[in-house]
Computed example of a mutant assay.
Amino acid sequence: MSADIREDNQPYDDINVTPMLDLAYVLLVVFIILTTASVQGIKVESPQTTAAENLAKPQTRAITITRDGDVFLDAYPVDMAQLETRLAQMKALNPALPVVLKGDASAQYEKVMLALEVCKRLGITEIGLVTKRAQ
Results as ranks from 00 to 15, higher is better:
81 A>G: 04
54 N>E: 01
90 M>W: 05
108 Q>H: 12
58 P>T: 06
70 D>H: 03
73 L>R: 02
66 T>C: 04
81 A>S: 08
102 K>P: 05
98 P>Y: 03
75 A>S: 10
97 L>C: 02
82 Q>P: 03
116 L>G: 11
61 R>I: 08
34 L>V: 12
113 M>Q: 15
81 A>C: 00
92 A>E: 10
83 L>P: 02
93 L>F: 03
64 T>S: 06
72 F>R: 00
116 L>M: 15
86 R>Q: 11
50 T>W: 04
112 V>F: 14
35 T>K: 10
56 A>Q: 09
61 R>H: 12
92 A>D: 08
48 Q>N: 08
40 Q>Y: 07
39 V>S: 05
83 L>Y: 03
46 S>P: 10
104 D>G: 05
47 P>Y: 06
50 T>E: 09
92 A>I: 00
72 F>L: 01
75 A>H: 08
34 L>R: 12
114 L>H: 14
91 K>L: 07
46 S>A: 12
77 P>Y: 00
57 K>F: 01
92 A>H: 06
93 L>Q: 10
44 V>S: 06
110 E>P: 05
108 Q>S: 14
64 T>P: 04
46 S>Q: 10
107 A>Y: 07
91 K>S: 05
60 T>E: 14
79 D>V: 01
88 A>D: 09
56 A>T: 02
108 Q>V: 12
38 S>M: 13
114 L>D: 15
71 V>M: 04
65 I>L: 07
54 N>Q: 08
